[in-house]
């Protein structure tokens, strides 16, 4: 059962982050929940809406070592993982770790790299370790990847296949700020300076404790029934070409646990499931029909189609 002392720094963290990225509290919470659930986050949006700022902000507030990798189409896996270089002095190959050996990675424009490079990153995300030249090297802990991608219809992109998308616990969109928030942004100080002025609200150990507390959040049978009903609906309804996998159902539960913890509850409510559903489910679903719908619309339709058991 998480105690309130878990929530006090979290509340402060969310407030501080809300002061930098304006009008995006929901996305900040989702990103945090994703982190607490030990998942990875994919942000899909146009350039310039604050993706990088969000990643930097989280790294700063959580006190994590931060690395940014800018993905390009000529990038090779070694550029991410690292490379062994022959050292003449010791007459041995010495491994020079790549940027992935960091606690928080911002993989910018991940869909601009070739599939080969993409999969190097995604495999590291999945395994929590990197194997090169017969040596297995563990990645640091916590290990959190925020990947960004441009909307896939833009030119010069290699869209991530479904199997790779599934590796991301959540996929969110930031969207344009509303009028008031944008006005405040324009009138305020430089975001970079603001971030530099912030002090970490959590230590890595505290984050670890939070991640452990999230696993212990109670899930009642009624909630499991609900998740099963949701998943079953996506599998049987003609609205979807294919439904949610068992891994998706697990992801939904894990995210809802973290969301409940952020809300200061020791148990998951249906509302927690519904809150994380737009971030967890749509990128794992393929809808039938011609009309392209946003993630929010897909999630809302799914929620309203399935009554609470």
């Amino acid at each position: 059962m998480p105690s309130s002392d878990n929530n006090a720094p979290l509340a402060g963290l969310i407030r501080q982050a809300g002061g930098v990225i304006l009008g995006k509290e929901r996305q900040i919470r989702l990103a945090l929940a994703c982190l607490v659930a030990r998942g990875h986050l994919l942000i899909e949006d146009l350039p310039g809406v604050g993706k990088t700022t969000l990643a930097q902000l989280l790294a700063r507030l959580l006190g994590l070592r931060f690395q940014r990798i800018q993905f390009t189409s000529d990038m090779l896996p070694a550029d991410i993982i690292g490379v062994s270089v022959f050292d003449r002095a010791s007459s041995r190959f010495v491994f020079h770790p790549g940027p992935i050996f960091s606690q928080l990675i911002l993989a910018d424009e991940v869909n601009r790299a070739t599939p080969k490079t993409q999969s190097a990153l995604l495999e590291a995300m999945e395994e929590g370790q990197v194997t090169t030249e017969g040596m297995t090297r563990p990645l640091p802990s916590p290990f959190f990847v925020i990947a960004t991608q441009n909307p896939s219809h833009q030119i010069g992109t290699f869209p991530l296949p479904e199997s790779q998308l599934d590796r991301f616990l959540m996929k969110i969109e930031l969207g344009y700020p509303d009028r008031e928030a944008e006005r405040e942004l324009l009138g305020g100080a430089d975001r970079r300076t603001m971030i530099a002025g912030l002090t970490p609200a959590l230590t890595p150990d505290e984050l670890e404790a939070l991640q452990q507390a999230a696993v212990r959040v109670h899930v009642a049978d009624a909630i499991i029934d609900y998740v099963q009903a949701l998943v079953a609906h996506t599998r049987s309804s003609s609205d979807y070409q294919f439904g949610l996998s068992p891994r998706a159902a697990l992801a939904l539960l894990a995210a809802a646990r973290a969301w409940a913890l952020l809300g200061g509850r020791g148990h998951v409510l249906p509302e927690d499931i519904q809150a994380v559903l737009p971030a967890v489910a749509p990128h794992r679903l393929r809808c039938s029909g011609q009309i392209r719908r946003s993630a929010g619309q897909i999630a809302a339709a799914l929620i309203e189609a399935v009554p609470l058991p």
Partner: peptide, 9 residues
């Protein structure tokens, strides 16, 4: 109550 509505909402 709407069929999908949780207690909190």
């Amino acid at each position: 109550r709407r069929p999908w509505e949780g207690p909190h909402d």
